[in-house]
Measured scan of single mutants.
Amino acid sequence: APRKVEMRRDPVLGFGFVAGSEKPVVVRSVTPGGPSEGKLIPGDQIVMINDEPVSAAPRERVIDLVRSCKESILLTVIQP
C-alpha cells in the first residue's frame, strides 16, 4: 500500500535522502538524524512528488521537483 510521507527541509541536511538514478526512482539511503529518518526506508519506490506522478519521469524532472520544494515535500512511496 502506498504511504504518504511529508518532510520539512533541514537547512543543513536538506530532506536527508538520496535517490537512485534509475526508473522507477528508488530511495538509496537515508541520512541519520535527517528529516527522512523514520519516514523513508532504503528501497522505497517514489511514485509521486507532491501531486505529480514520477514513476516514468526523467531524473532531471525528479531533481527539479525536489529542489523546488523550499520548505516541505510530500512523497508518495511504496515498498515494491
Rank of each mutant, 00 (worst) to 15 (best):
A1I: 15
A1R: 04
A1P: 02
A1K: 06
P2K: 11
P2R: 13
P2H: 15
P2L: 13
R3A: 03
R3H: 06
R3S: 03
R3D: 02
R3Q: 05
R3W: 02
K4L: 10
K4N: 05
K4S: 09
V5T: 04
V5C: 03
V5E: 06
E6H: 15
E6Y: 14
E6N: 13
E6R: 12
E6I: 14
E6G: 07
E6D: 10
E6A: 09
M7A: 05
M7Y: 01
M7T: 04
M7C: 05
M7E: 00
M7G: 01
M7K: 00
R8S: 13
R8H: 10
R8M: 13
R8P: 08
R9E: 04
R9S: 07
R9A: 10
R9V: 05
R9M: 07
D10I: 04
D10N: 10
D10F: 03
P11K: 09
V12I: 10
V12Y: 10
G14K: 05
G14M: 04
F15E: 01
F15M: 04
F15T: 01
F15Q: 02
G16I: 00
G16R: 00
G16W: 00
G16C: 00
G16K: 01
F17H: 01
F17S: 01
F17E: 01
V18S: 08
V18I: 13
V18D: 10
V18M: 09
A19T: 14
A19Y: 09
A19P: 12
A19L: 15
A19M: 14
G20Q: 12
G20H: 12
S21F: 13
S21L: 11
S21W: 09
E22N: 07
E22K: 06
E22C: 09
E22T: 06
E22P: 00
K23Y: 15
K23N: 15
K23G: 13
K23T: 12
K23H: 12
P24G: 04
P24R: 03
P24L: 02
V25M: 15
V25T: 14
V25F: 07
V26Q: 13
V26L: 11
V27A: 03
V27W: 00
R28L: 12
R28F: 07
S29P: 01
S29Q: 12
S29I: 05
V30I: 09
V30T: 09
V30A: 03
T31S: 14
T31V: 10
T31R: 12
T31K: 13
T31F: 07
P32E: 12
G33Y: 07
G33K: 10
G34Q: 01
G34L: 03
G34M: 02
G34R: 00
P35A: 06
P35S: 04
P35T: 03
S36Y: 00
S36T: 03
S36Q: 01
S36E: 01
S36R: 00
E37W: 09
E37N: 08
E37M: 07
E37G: 06
E37T: 07
E37H: 09
E37F: 08
E37V: 10
G38F: 08
K39Q: 12
K39N: 09
K39V: 10
K39W: 07
L40H: 00
L40S: 01
L40I: 07
L40C: 03
L40M: 06
I41E: 15
I41A: 14
I41K: 14
I41W: 14
P42W: 03
P42V: 11
P42E: 13
P42S: 08
G43A: 04
G43K: 05
D44Y: 02
D44H: 04
D44N: 03
D44E: 06
Q45H: 13
Q45E: 12
Q45M: 09
I46F: 05
M48C: 14
M48N: 08
M48G: 13
M48V: 07
M48I: 07
I49V: 14
I49E: 01
I49C: 05
I49G: 01
I49A: 03
I49S: 00
N50M: 06
N50V: 02
N50K: 05
N50F: 07
N50D: 12
N50T: 02
D51N: 11
D51G: 14
D51F: 06
D51Y: 07
D51H: 15
E52F: 09
E52I: 11
E52N: 11
E52A: 10
E52P: 01
E52L: 12
E52R: 11
P53G: 09
P53Q: 12
P53I: 15
P53K: 14
P53H: 12
V54T: 07
A57Q: 12
A57S: 13
A57E: 13
A57N: 07
P58V: 06
P58C: 11
P58S: 15
P58L: 05
P58Y: 05
P58H: 09
P58A: 10
P58I: 04
P58T: 12
R59W: 13
R59K: 14
R59P: 13
R59S: 10
E60G: 13
E60W: 08
R61W: 09
R61N: 11
R61K: 13
V62R: 00
V62W: 04
V62C: 07
V62F: 06
I63P: 01
I63Y: 09
I63K: 12
I63C: 08
I63Q: 14
I63M: 12
D64Q: 13
D64W: 05
D64S: 13
D64E: 13
D64P: 03
D64A: 09
L65Q: 08
L65N: 04
L65E: 05
L65K: 13
L65W: 05
L65G: 04
V66F: 10
V66H: 02
V66P: 01
V66G: 02
R67G: 12
S68C: 09
S68D: 11
C69S: 13
C69G: 05
C69F: 06
C69E: 10
C69V: 09
C69Q: 12
E71L: 05
E71G: 11
E71R: 10
E71Q: 12
E71D: 14
E71T: 11
S72T: 13
S72Y: 07
S72G: 11
I73A: 06
I73D: 03
I73Y: 02
I73F: 05
L74S: 15
L74V: 15
L74E: 14
L74R: 15
L75H: 03
L75V: 08
L75D: 04
L75R: 02
T76C: 09
T76N: 14
T76I: 06
T76Q: 08
V77E: 02
Q79H: 12
Q79A: 15
Q79K: 12
Q79P: 13
Q79M: 07
Q79F: 05
P80L: 04
P80S: 10
P80C: 06
P80D: 04
P80V: 05
